[in-house]
Design a protein around this nucleic acid. Structure first.
Lengths: 224, 224
DNA sequence: ATTTCATTCAATGAATCTATAGAATGATTG
DNA sequence: CAATCATTCTATAGATTCATTGAATGAAAT
């Protein structure tokens, strides 16, 4: 059963090739069009020699291929799925690295007036919604929102928060929620919106808990 | 515009966390069920201390989260998409690392009767097809096949070769092709099918060359 | 309070990765 | 054939990663 580990080691090689910002920049450029070493070096802000070395690492694991065209060597992506792979990596990183940012956020939060990020309980939220005093904000991704969300929630993915501020009222209390108590998207949203002067609190639970409690949800299919 | 590079550097951190066989093994185990450090260490064949360190690297980039349960610390995947990410990584690696495997394959091939993997030229292929003696096998991915393929070619992605043998005739000559002379999928297919007793040869060119030569192709839209 | 267990932390050396500079290669041009 | 251009190779030093060891922490049991 060592072959299993061999396979994982091979995968790890490919992942390591992706594990460098400059190489990702090169790949990103190649996703747009094939290019020579010099062009790639310029767009990635590298010296030609250095770019060449990085490109060869990418080539070693089969992510790019090189063909000579006269004096130049043209690199191209071996497989279009590499773009998908990078996009998925970005998605996973974007949502999960919140953990890191949370630590930073905490420092900020502690600077504020003590429990600046205090959370709204389920009962409080229900009461506020009933009285029409509260606007719900779903800061998860669009996909997740479409798969199901709290009734009348506005969806602004955290990544687009600043772009879509016009959807948020300034004169009402906003309650932001995300995936649950261990998800930190809403923490960040609250923090950023506070700085912009909004009245925001965080729902202490999240969509999964809400749904599991049998409360009404809006959306398409159900997910296990 | 440095923020762009910052983002890529952050992505690179996540990719680097995936860039180790042991950590991939831990993630793979976690994809099945949450587990304690000790359990994870055992299934990955690591010492507890070492496993703990790897797990914390994964935690640092947000791929896993840890919760204490009594004496134990239970780790779990932060996001189900991590499984998808690993699967995609596997797919990309499997098709693209062919370059490496080609070197291995060559050794095998050289052991066989000289030109065991000798290739069929375009003219030979056209003649064989005309006489109806040849069955064409496209070992590229399903996507690529659907985007365009040689007429009447059967599509069996290399990854599913052994699963779909019933589509291949044992009594006729098979010619496998892929992306071109520098693509090695067909090398591997020929080698594996030979061992199973099929009469297989490899087309010395590939789909792009065939199409570029103005020969008929089947499929949907055209790709530049 | 002490012991035990699971896990984490800290320190070490070997191995690997990175950027730089300069030499070497391969293909075109004069 | 010499000169030039694009790229690759080689060598180097500094930084990072990895596995190992033993000590330290935190929670449960005696």
């Amino acid at each position: 059963m060592t072959s299993q580990q061999d396979l994982l080691d091979t995968l790890a090689q490919v992942a390591r090739a992706l594990g460098n910002g400059h190489r990702l920049a090169l790949l990103k450029r190649l996703a747009q069009a094939d290019a020579s070493v010099e062009v790639l070096a310029n767009t990635a802000g590298l010296t030609v020699g250095n770019a060449s070395q990085h490109l060869q690492q990418l080539r070693r694991v089969g992510l790019v291929t090189a063909t000579r065209a006269g004096k130049q060597v043209i690199y191209r992506l071996t497989d279009e799925r590499i773009v998908t792979l990078m996009e998925l990596l970005r998605q996973v990183a974007e949502t999960n690295l919140a953990e890191m940012e949370r630590l930073v956020s905490r420092l900020f939060a502690d600077d504020n007036a003590g429990g600046a990020l205090e959370a709204v309980s389920r009962d409080e939220l229900l009461a506020g919604l009933k009285r029409g005093e509260v606007v719900l904000l779903d800061v998860r991704s669009e996909d997740e929102y479409e798969a199901g969300h709290l009734p009348e929630a506005i969806n602004i993915p955290l990544t687009h928060l600043e772009d879509m501020l016009d959807r948020l009222p300034r004169d009402r209390e906003i309650v932001a929620y995300c995936r649950g108590p261990y998800c930190t998207l809403s923490h960040q949203a609250v923090q950023r919106l506070r700085q912009l002067g909004y009245q925001v609190k965080r729902f202490e639970e999240g969509y999964p808990e809400w749904k599991a409690a049998g409360l009404p949800v809006t959306g398409q299919a159900s997910r296990s």
